[in-house]
């Protein structure tokens, strides 16, 4: 009975059981951890204009910038492989076809071992901020949150919102979003 195949089978089965058990324990050690931390979003300024986008028609487009400061170093425990950090603009627009809106303006991937302090003066918006219900102009309350998704070595994919947020009232006039290079 104790031929090579039987022995191989036993060794493989045992190592996989041990690996699965260890992975599960690794997941358990971080399963109930709070990954939240303080964030500072400050000095927001915004501009709104009309834009024409293929497939959406005439929409409103906004550009928001400001300062962003957070230290995510403490979030890297032994089961954190990567942080996907993103800045969300959240606003409500009653009496339009939309009512609740969330737009990602900026994101960053921080892998284990990379510096995890973010200190952005006048962050540059990476994604277009478009609103097809045209409710951005004079919107009194666009709130910016920083949020991150902890990607583990193995385990639960946790999404945490940073403490503190900053709201901005959008201007009530359209202005050019980008300075024209040709004067």
């Amino acid at each position: 009975m104790h031929n090579i195949l039987a022995r191989l089978n036993a060794v493989l089965a045992f190592s996989f059981t041990v690996l699965a058990g260890l992975t599960f324990l690794c997941f358990l050690t971080t399963a109930f951890k709070d990954y939240s931390t303080d964030v500072r979003v400050r000095d927001l300024t915004g501009r709104v204009n009309v834009a024409y986008v293929n497939g959406l028609g005439e929409v409103e487009e906004a550009i928001i910038t400001g300062d962003l400061e957070v230290d995510l170093t403490p979030l890297f425990d032994w089961n954190a492989k990567e942080l996907f950090v993103y800045l969300i603009a959240e606003y409500v627009t009653p009496n339009t076809p939309n009512s609740f809106n969330q737009i990602v303006l900026w994101d960053r991937i921080i892998q284990r071992g990379q510096p995890a302090k973010i200190n952005q003066k006048k962050f540059a918006q990476e994604y277009r901020f478009l609103d097809d219900s045209k409710a951005l102009k004079a919107n009194p309350n666009v709130t910016l949150f920083l949020q991150w998704n902890v990607i583990p070595n193995a385990g639960a994919l946790v999404t945490t919102r940073g403490r503190n947020s900053q709201s901005i009232a959008m201007p009530d006039t359209y202005t050019a979003l980008r300075q024209s290079k040709r004067a």
Partner: peptide, 9 residues
């Protein structure tokens, strides 16, 4: 990943 979202309520 979800990048933009609009909910009509």
């Amino acid at each position: 990943r979800v990048l933009q979202l609009h909910d009509d309520g």
